[in-house]
């Protein structure tokens, strides 16, 4: 386990262990975890906690790193919270090469800037797209559908959802 000094909080969610670290320490923590055997970064993503009443969140964006130890088959989720516009966090593509595209996707979808990434461009959306689609205040879009009560709600995702 990484040194307790890095860990802010830890727990288990539905059977999956997780730890929280401070955002500036993410690179350090992941590098340490890699030497401890968590050699595979399964995925990296983000959750937008805008208007989320389920608990009090330290910040709006939660960046999630799912790690796996291929020998012992243990899994660990590393979480960190960031704020700002745009939010910044260190890139970890040098520790885990598959993070390269995952970080580009997270940038594309949430507008999170990964400092130190070699080529932080949009990956899924067209290059001239405006906005970050997976943010909660970005409307689902599409066209209104007759006889559907819910469509209006989708359009204004932030406070009603």
């Amino acid at each position: 386990m990484i040194s307790e000094t890095l860990i802010v909080e830890k727990g288990v969610s539905a059977g999956d262990p997780w730890v929280t670290v401070d955002a500036p320490k993410v690179h350090e923590a992941l590098a340490a975890l890699k030497t401890e055997g968590y050699t595979l970064l399964v995925f990296l993503s983000c959750v937008d906690h805008l208007v989320d009443a389920s608990r009090s969140w330290p910040a709006r964006y939660e960046v999630v790193y799912q790690l796996r130890n291929m020998e012992t088959r243990e899994q660990l989720r590393l979480r960190t919270f960031i704020e700002g516009d745009p939010p910044h966090i260190d890139s970890v593509h040098d520790v885990f090469p598959p993070a390269n595209w995952d970080e580009r996707e997270t940038y594309d979808m949430f507008g999170i800037v990964f400092d130190g990434h070699p080529e932080l461009t949009r990956i899924l959306m067209p290059d001239d797209w405006v906005g970050y689609p997976l943010r909660r205040d970005y409307p689902v879009g599409g066209e209104p559908v007759e006889f559907s009560e819910e469509h209006e709600m989708w359009q204004t995702a932030p406070d009603k959802a």
Binding site: L124, P126, Y138, V140
Partner: peptide
Amino acid sequence: VIGYLHTGIEKQMEA
């Protein structure tokens, strides 16, 4: 270069 079949499935699931 990918993204030519981006369907917005993850956003759709949230709705």
